[in-house]
Each structure stands twice: as C-alpha cells, then as structure tokens.
Amino acid sequence: MKFPDPVQIAVPFFILLIIIEMVAVKRGARGAYDWRDSATSLTMGMGSTLAGLLSAGIVAGLAFWFWQHRLFDIPIAWWSGILCFVLDDFAYYVFHRTAHRIRWFWASHVIHHSSQHYNLSTALRQTWTGFISLGFIFRLPLFLIGFPPALVFFCAALNLVYQFWIHTEVVKRLPWGLEAWLNTPSHHRVHHGTNPRYLDRNYAGVFIVWDRWLGTFEPEHDDEPVRYGIVKNLPTFNPLWTATHEWVGIAKDVWHAPSWKARWMYIAGPPGWTPDGSRDTADVIRAAWEQEQAQAQAAE
C-alpha cells in the first residue's frame, strides 16, 4: 500500500497559515515576528528537508532490516494505524526527552529551540544534523514489533504536521477538555520556555498524556509569560552557525577535557554539564530558582 506524503501536502497550508498569523499579529493578535528570525527559521526548514533526503535511504534500509526481523505480522488496517500512531507518538516522547537530556542529541535538537520567537515559522526551524545525532533509532522498535515501515513513516509525518500548528501564541487555550490530553499551543509554549519553571517540560508530540504520566508536565501559568529561546541565546542569525554551534561546542569541550570521564560526560551528559560546574544544567537552573523562591517565601 502506498501512502501519500502528508508533509508535501501540508507545505502550501504551512505558508498560508504563516501569512495569516503574520497579518493577525500585525493587527494586534498575541505574538511576534522578526523578519531576520523568520528567515533563519525558514532556511533551517529547507535545509532540514534537503539533509533528510540525503540520509533517507539509510534510514529506510535500517527500517526494513528491523522489520524483516519483526516479532509480529501486523497488517495495514485502521486499528493498526491508530495503534501505530499512538506508539509512534510515545517513541517521539522518548526521543524528545532524550534530545533535551543528553548533549549529543541536544546538539541536533537545539536548533529548533534557538529562536527567541514562538510563531509558526519557528515550527519549521529544524535540524540539519538529525541523522548524525541518531534520532531515528527511537523509531526502530516499532519496526521490530512488526509495524510496516510505510505505516510508521506515514504516522511520523502526520505527527510532524500536527506539531506545526501548535507553534503559535495566537491560540491561548483549546476548549472542550482538549488541553487534558492533547499537546496544545499552550503546553508547547511551556516547552519552548527558558524560565526555570518551564525548562525541560512538556516533551509531547501529539498526546500530552505522556508528560502527565511520566511527571514532566507543567501547565502554562498566565502570571508567568514564557521567555522563548535557549539558556544562552545565539548572537547571530547565520543558519550555518545555528545548525552547528552545539557540535562545535562539543568538539571544543572534548578537545580540552581534563579526563576521559569528562570527555564522555561532555557528549553523554546533560547540556550545560562541566567537570567544574562552571556552566549550568537545566537541573541546576531549576534548583537555583526553587531555592530563590523558597527564600522569597520565607522572607514574606
């Protein structure tokens, strides 16, 4: 069975929705754009597509190899499609959480967070080095279970398309209880925040239930506006530096590391880890903030 490519179908709608959001923001809707920032985001998106094509053959080959050693014969049907979509979303959650907690994966994923804006163009700010960081390994268990590669890739593309529209400040909250189980603009704004309270929270792709279940959920607080970006925001809009800065950082750190343990931790430790604690990990930032909050409460 041949599936359509949801991303290819969605691209004209992406462009249209970005135009609509820009005009809405210009007319007073919540949100912000900067033409330089959007230029970088869109260039990163185009580069990501090209980079993905270069590695697509290897990823597909691996997928088929795992599927040949599958545990079950799962047919393509409505029920297997739903099951595959849900499990793929969980695989995305695991990937995404890892991408924030291990610097090797972060070096690739940081690109998506490197904008200080949060709008629909930010959704397209994607990595050029996903293949190098091995992000695709998180989907391999699905092939081993027995989901046909075409079905998995279709579900993954649907997941990607879903995540486009949640990158907006225009939508405040969703009605009808959808905030309880879906990843929404509000939940994902938190994920893009550098406020200590919001750091490393809400990893979900489509279903926020994974975060609620695994203790990584944080609601958006109306009295604490999200500050978007990364802990050390980039000083340039240069797409090449945006794509590679963390890899360069890893290389420099590993080169100058005082020991093999430090070399390993610079790669496999959390972003911000240093042997002397001279930089801050997300956990350190959160702990410092919690201490500050506790002191402020004690003083009241």
């Binding site: 691209v11 820009m22 869109l42 163009s121």
Partner: peptide, 9 residues
Amino acid sequence: GIALLVVLA
C-alpha cells in the same frame, strides 16, 4: 516561498 514570507514580514 521563503523569500515571499521574509519580504512580507
């Protein structure tokens, strides 16, 4: 498409 959006912005 990128040029269009950037010019529009």
